[in-house]
Amino acid sequence: MNNPLVAAGALTAAALLCACSPSQPAVLAPRPVRTVELHYDNARESNRYVGTVQSRYEVDQAFRVGGKVVQRKVDVGQSVQEGDVLAVLDDSDYRLAEEASQRAWEASVAQARQADSDRQRLSALKADGSVSAADDERARTSARTAQSNAEAEARQLELARNRLKYTVLRASRSGVVTTVRFEVGQVVAEGTPVISIADPSLPEIVVDVPEDRLVTFQQSSFQAALTSLPGKTFAVALRELAPQASAQTRTYRARLKPLDMQQLPLGATATLEAARVMAGTQVAAVPATALTQSSGQPAVWVVRPTGGEALGTVERVPVAVWGYRNEEVLVSGPPAGERVVTAGVQKMSPGLKVALASGAAEDKAVVAR
């Protein structure tokens, strides 16, 4: 028994027997997952539009006569009051025209007086038969014609004075200058807009609405935010909706006013959110990471409890998707109170044992408001 060869053989046999014996399978621990609990509420259809802040009242100012600009008294962003001088044209030609009209009027007045004197003399001579009735009638006609010419020249003089006055462009209303389209020395045409003045006290948000969203837009409530004021929203109301689509964009222009009439910077970029309650439709908002697919259809993984509140198995359940909002998706299908896996859905498989991660019991799906 003390033979070393025999002892070595026994050890080798024992090792072979151990290698041939079946091994015990390892027990896998349940995979920890994060979940949210589904809570349903009335669905709200929400659409976003990008627009600008504009004044409700914006006027394009133009000279009522043409000419060369000799003075420009305002710049963009400058506040003006009604009647302030904005720009001046060279008035040399208009002064000459006024003087010519003045002389023509004076001549016509003199002719009218002479014709009236002739009429009076002929009327006196007609009494004793020195002149014929025809001569008297011609005198009366000449007097009336001369008087009419004098009145016409008076109107021409008034027009010439007005055109001279129009060489000075004045603000038609108080506000802030938003656009200047000319420079000193430039020749501008009559009626060409050169300056825009907006009233900053009545700002509005202007957006363009596509035709397929027009009905929904009219039934919505609105919240707006400015790019220059991140995180701050305010309520606005629809004031005006164009009755006809734009020929270029085929969209309808909408103008919305702030309900609290707050001051907004003109020209700022605004984001408008139009939300409408969809009566009779119940949805829940879950994180977008919870969404997966089953046979090409949207689905989510639902945890079915198996051993207490913290253990369960997962099952893929089809859902109906009603819309998207930021990092959430609006769904319906699973019963209220079900817990939906929100992370690692690509690693789930039917029947997989899972454990709710620490703190997951308090996670809840955001109600779709």
Rank of each mutant, 00 (worst) to 15 (best):
Y49E: 01
P265Q: 08
A274W: 04
M1L: 14
S101R: 00
N47I: 03
T249I: 02
R95Y: 06
A343Q: 13
Q156V: 02
V321F: 04
Q102R: 13
V319C: 08
A279R: 11
K257D: 11
F234E: 00
A10F: 12
E153L: 01
A225T: 14
R121E: 14
A288H: 09
K257W: 07
A357D: 10
A368R: 02
R144V: 12
V286A: 00
A152M: 14
R140W: 07
V366C: 02
A13D: 09
Q293W: 14
K68Q: 15
L272F: 01
T269R: 09
V85P: 01
L272Q: 01
R138L: 14
L330K: 10
R339T: 06
A225Y: 08
L272W: 00
D93Q: 13
A26M: 07
N3F: 15
L226M: 08
G67M: 02
V314C: 10
A100L: 09
T251H: 07
A146R: 06
G323K: 10
K364C: 00
V53S: 00
P30Y: 03
P334Q: 04
S23H: 06
T249A: 03
K73V: 10
A198V: 12
A100H: 04
Q147Y: 09
R56S: 10
Q147F: 09
T342K: 00
R250D: 09
R72F: 07
A62N: 06
G307I: 09
K73Y: 10
L89N: 04
R316N: 11
A43R: 03
L16I: 14
E98Y: 03
V321C: 08
L125Y: 09
L159K: 10
R250L: 12
A368N: 08
Y252D: 07
S220I: 12
T227W: 09
S174P: 02
L169M: 08
R181Y: 04
P200A: 13
A290G: 03
V177E: 04
A254F: 03
L259P: 03
A26R: 12
Y40L: 03
V300E: 09
L226V: 10
Q78G: 03
Y40G: 01
E338L: 03
A368V: 04
A270R: 00
A139I: 01
L214Y: 11
V187N: 15
V354M: 05
R369Y: 12
G67I: 07
Y166C: 11
G191W: 10
A284R: 05
S221G: 15
A87E: 05
P230T: 08
V176Y: 07
A104D: 05
A97Y: 00
P22T: 08
E98L: 10
A154K: 15
E240Q: 15
E309I: 13
